[in-house]
Design a binder for these strands. Sequence first.
DNA 1: CGGCTTCATCGTAAAACGACGATAAGAGGC
DNA 2: GCCTCTTATCGTCGTTTTACGATGAAGCCG
Lengths: 115, 115
Amino acid sequence: MKPTPRSSQPSCPPADSRADRRAVEGAAADAELAALAKALGHPIRVQILRILVRKEACICGDIVGELPLAQSTVSQHLKMLKEAGLIRGEVDGPRVCYCIEPRALRRLKALVGGL
Amino acid sequence: MKPTPRSSQPSCPPADSRADRRAVEGAAADAELAALAKALGHPIRVQILRILVRKEACICGDIVGELPLAQSTVSQHLKMLKEAGLIRGEVDGPRVCYCIEPRALRRLKALVGGL
DNA sequence: CGGCTTCATCGTAAAACGACGATAAGAGGC
DNA sequence: GCCTCTTATCGTCGTTTTACGATGAAGCCG
C-alpha cells in the first residue's frame, strides 16, 4: 500500500467544442438515444459518469476505489461507457486516464430534451 | 379487417403538473436515472415514446400497427415503459389507452440535465 | 533483469432481455 | 348465450448483461 503519489494533474485531451447539427428525431436518432440511454441504464455507470463530471479532470482507476465492485467489473462498465462514446480513456504510463466526452453528453441532453 | 372506427378522441387523465423537488444527485437519483435510462435503452421504446409524444393525446394499440413487431412483444415494451413510470395506461372499454406521463418525462430531463 | 503496479481481457455462471406464438381475460355486439 | 375484438400474460428460446476470480500485457522502479 503505497501512498499512490499522483504524478501531476491528470490531463485530458483538448476537448473539441463544435456544435452538433444532427437531428434529434428519426430512426437514426432513436437508435442513438437508445444506445446512450442503455449505457446510462445502470446505477454504477451513472455513478461513474458523475465522478468524472465532478472531478472535471480525468482520473484513472481511482474510480475503482470509489466503487464497491471488483476491478474487472468496473473495467467492464468503463468499457461500455467508452463504447457508447460517453467517456474517453487516455493511456498515461501504467495508468489509464478516463474523462467524460462533453460532446456525447451534450448530444444526450439534446436528444432527451427533444422528447 | 374492420375499418376500426375510433369511437372519439381518446382521453387521458387530467395530468397533474406539480413541480418536482427531488434531488438530481445522490445514490437515489442515480438509481432513478438508471431506471429511466434503462427503459429508454431500446430503439423500439424510444419510438413508442415518440409516438405518444407526437400524438400528445393517448392512443391505444394503434401503436402495435406502427411497429414491425408482434403484438405480444409491443405489449412487453409498453409494460416496461409503464413500470418505469414513463407512460400510463387507461382501460377504455375493450381497448387500452396509453399516454405519456409528463411528470416522469420532466423528471428524466431534469436528471439528465443535472449531469 | 526481476518485481510491482495498473488495467484489460478471458472464462464462467446466474440473471435479465428480446422476440415469438399460444393462450387467457375482459368488453361489446349479434 | 356465443363470438369477436383487443390486450395482457405465459412458456420458450437464444442472446446479452452483470458479476466474479484468474490470467495476461504494459509500463515503471530499484
